[in-house]
């Protein structure tokens, strides 16, 4: 048992995701509070040249194997479990991301370690570690005191500045032999790129974004009309895509796109953490929601408590 903090680095197509640097930044602070080292775990095939980007960590544990070339829920979980079992860190940080969600619970069961997910903040003092989860669509914060020997936290993207974890240098690299990956049940087949052809919402200055509050796809024309009058494009939150009312290319958030328009007009979007992740860096956020307690108002600069079916036509009529 050590006091070290391990960050499971996430990368795809040769590039680290921001969550990696967000965790390194936060992890550095935690390692210092716990009196341990910050260690990055880098998994892949021929990835050692990427280690320099992880210099916020004092050490990079590098696991390479042809079986780890592409992310696999099975091979990567097994590998992280083996690393954690060998080093027994105090705290393991994974992303609450598509990759991290496969790893955290797996390592928790394999190594009998505590696990907390939806985590927006972690603090450590006197050896005790507390994690805050944003549950119930961001409407409730739950503070968990971690018990036992080692903990895993699933960090919500965007909860800590990535810049704190970016550093150049030459960290010490420790090779770790991959566990036996010869008899796997999961075979990676291919990465499928999104289809082109639709409006690219990541390059728009003005986004009129709709959520569940729109109630039906039959109500979308009034939103299109408003966006046209504003000279912007329509984007949306996940439920509209899951309901097949709008195309995946218009989705803002965790499983969609990250956008940074000059204006983000959020209509009937409550502001679950998964959505906030995709739009919190917009220049000006104006939110309209019937629920005065909607979490979206924590991120908007301006808010309107009201019915979008009153506000939308009123706006369109005045433009």
């Amino acid at each position: 048992m050590s006091n070290h903090v391990f960050v499971i680095a996430e990368h795809i197509k040769g590039k680290f995701d921001d969550i990696t640097f967000e965790m390194l930044g936060k992890g550095k602070e935690l390692a210092s509070s716990l009196g341990g080292e910050l260690v990055a775990v880098l998994i892949g095939n021929n990835v050692k040249s990427m280690a320099a980007q992880l210099s916020a960590a004092s050490k990079v544990i590098c696991v390479e194997s042809p079986q780890l070339e592409n992310f696999s829920p099975e091979a990567h979980s097994k590998t992280v479990s083996a690393v954690v079992n060998a080093h027994k860190p105090k705290l393991v940080m994974t992303g609450y991301t598509s990759m991290g969600m496969e790893i955290g619970p797996a390592v928790s069961v394999d190594n009998s370690m505590s696990l907390v997910s939806f985590v927006s903040n972690v603090t450590a003092s006197g050896g005790s570690v507390t994690a805050v989860s944003r549950l119930y669509g961001g409407k409730i914060n739950v503070e968990s005191q971690l018990e036992g020997e080692g903990f895993i936290v699933g960090m919500l993207p965007g909860s800590s500045p990535a810049d704190l974890g970016r550093a150049a240098g030459t960290p010490s690299i420790e090779d770790f032999a991959a566990p036996d990956l010869s008899n796997l049940s999961i075979k990676f087949r291919q990465l499928i790129e999104p289809e082109d052809g639709d409006v690219d919402i990541t390059t728009q200055d003005i986004l009129v974004s709709v959520g569940r509050g729109i109630q039906s796809d039959e109500n979308l024309p009034i939103v299109n009309e408003l966006a046209a009058k504003l000279g912007g494009a329509v984007s949306c939150s996940r439920p509209l895509v899951d309901s097949k009312w709008m195309s995946k290319t218009r989705q803002v958030g965790k499983s969609g796109l990250k956008v940074k328009p000059k204006l983000y007009l959020a209509l009937g979007i409550s502001g679950a953490p998964e959505h906030i992740e995709g739009m919190k860096d917009a220049g000006l956020i104006i939110a309209v929601n019937s629920d005065p307690k909607a979490p979206i108002f924590d991120y908007a600069q301006y808010g309107v408590v009201g019915d979008i079916f009153d506000i939308i036509p009123a706006l369109t009529g005045k433009l």
């Binding site: 928790s108 009998s112 370690m113 505590s114 696990l115 907390v116 507390t130 994690a131 944003r134 961001g138 409407k139 409730i140 914060n141 739950v142 503070e143 968990s144 005191q145 971690l146 018990e147 036992g148 903990f151 939110a287 005065p292 307690k293 909607a294 979490p295 108002f297 924590d298 991120y299 908007a300 600069q301 301006y302 808010g303 309107v304 408590v305």
Partner: peptide, 21 residues
């Protein structure tokens, strides 16, 4: 077991950031 205990449940300060119109 979860390996953790709940210390506190709270509501985030709502509307802290937004100026209401």
């Amino acid at each position: 077991s979860t390996g953790s205990s709940i210390k506190k449940v709270s509501k985030p300060e709502s509307g802290a950031g937004a100026e209401m119109i």
